[in-house]
Amino acid sequence: MKSVEIKNLNYSYNVNTPVIKDLSLTIDKGEYVSIVGHNGSGKSTLCKLMIGLLEKNSGSIIIDGVELNKDTLNDIRHKVAIVFQNPDNQFIGVTVEDDIAFSLENDNVPRNEMIPLVREYAKKVGMLEFLNKEPSYLSGGQKQRVAIADALIRRPDILILDEATSMLDPNGKAEILSLVREMRKENPSLTIISITHDIEEAYLSDRIILLNEGEIVLSCLPNELFKNREIIKKYNLSVPFIVELKMRLKDLGYDIDDSSSLNEIGEKIWQSK
């Protein structure tokens, strides 16, 4: 089943600088897709178009069979939730619980239904004991966990992570990635679209889409992308260490194609000594 269907999408901030150029893309339900590309390649613009924060120039965006337009905007925003990059600038409530409840308040959910829901979702992201804490007492990773709870409480079909880990330290990043993994286990039908510079993070996804100047350059399995040295070089992508190591060792004449871990690769080397 298709979760996102984008056809011939065009968008430009002004006439001379198109940001998205005739872009078409489909994403299946439950798929975990990473969108990579250097700054200014149009990744974030694409996200904003998908939740209707920007208005397209032409083309169509169909989410779960519903075409995005002015009438369906509210509907679409219940299907698509987004976590932005900066943990501080999306923390609306004064405390964790107020922030998680914000969406529910907007949907006019009665208070007695809100309270258990807020607790449930705070628990999901491991923030139950911080319910009455203000953002200045939280780490970046904790704030992003709250942002994920904010998104999940809308019970979306699609979750967009717009560089959600890029401002976090390694601990915070690890927290968020393991949370995403849990989320997928719990709800396999949740489609995840992750925009990222972190190549190790992209490596975990089902599919990588490489975007450049508003166009899709490549859409393939992570492994396939990293094998394509020409593309890697041309678009200045970094490569997960293990992929690069295998490439370099192969050049040295080691046969390590079927080794998948550092241990296995190492074994090949010391055996051949």
Partner: peptide, 17 residues
């Protein structure tokens, strides 16, 4: 987090390389 490169180099060293 020890860099993977370093971990790998250590691994090789442990095996008498």
């Amino acid at each position: 987090e020890i860099p993977e490169l370093f971990k790998f180099a250590l691994l090789l060293k442990e095996h008498q390389l």
